[in-house]
């Protein structure tokens, strides 16, 4: 009777030790296969599988891309007749008046004309158009404030691309 009891007890000990060993192997495997960063900083990268929210967002993005792609393909042969642009920056900083805009559409060329009016004074600047990732912008305008007198200036930015023109206005106080 006592020999059977000791054998059973030994098996239980072996099983527990085996379980602990396997868990430890799992941890060791994770640590081994988790790559270390090249720097001495702690690696904060999340190597876990994506969460359901992350995955769903990715699927939603894909759906939208596909919809846009399919709808754009239908428009592919229809030339654009209009475009829009907005002044995004009109501010004086460190002695320079920065005027920037954003043009809807990706264009490699075009003409931007910035007209600044303050009473009887008028200053005109021109620049080309630069393509960005999804929009375009005028290549300018950094105007030294010394070229302009103090007061409130009316800005008219006119962009011409492929015989299309779009204007936007702003005011800036100097």
């Amino acid at each position: 009777m006592s020999m059977q009891k000791s054998t059973s007890k030994r098996n239980i000990i072996l099983i527990v030790l085996g379980a602990v060993l396997l868990i430890a192997l799992g941890i060791a495997a994770y640590l081994y296969f988790t790559p270390k960063t090249a720097t001495t900083e702690p690696d904060t990268t999340n190597y876990a599988p994506p969460t359901s929210e992350e995955t769903k967002q990715g699927q939603d993005i894909k759906k939208q891309i596909v919809e846009e792609d399919l709808s754009k393909n239908e428009q592919a042969d229809t030339p654009k007749k209009t475009f829009s642009q907005q002044i995004t920056t009109a501010e004086k900083t460190d002695g320079t008046l920065y005027v920037r805009n954003e043009i809807a559409g990706v264009y490699q060329s075009g003409t931007c004309t910035l007209t600044l009016v303050n009473g009887s004074k008028t200053v005109k600047k021109t620049a080309g158009v630069q393509a960005l990732a999804k929009t375009s912008t005028c290549k300018g305008f950094n105007i030294p404030v010394s070229e302009l007198s103090s007061g409130t200036w009316d800005l008219i930015l006119s962009v011409t691309i492929n015989d299309m023109t779009a204007d936007d206005t702003a005011k800036v106080a100097l």
């Binding site: 994506p50 992350e54 995955t55 967002q57 990715g58 699927q59 939603d60 993005i61 894909k62 891309i65 596909v66 792609d69 754009k72 393909n73 428009q75 592919a76 654009k80 809807a104 559409g105 990706v106 393509a131 990732a133 999804k134 929009t135």
Partner: peptide, 29 residues
């Protein structure tokens, strides 16, 4: 964020074509 490519388990070829959305305006090809 442009194509969902990182988590996509069945990416389309068009997704690689414009993988970062560069040169893709909102309302034009």
């Amino acid at each position: 964020k442009e194509q969902g490519l990182v988590t996509d388990t069945w990416p389309l070829n068009i997704q690689y074509r414009t993988a970062t959305g560069y040169g893709c305006p909102d309302t034009a090809p």
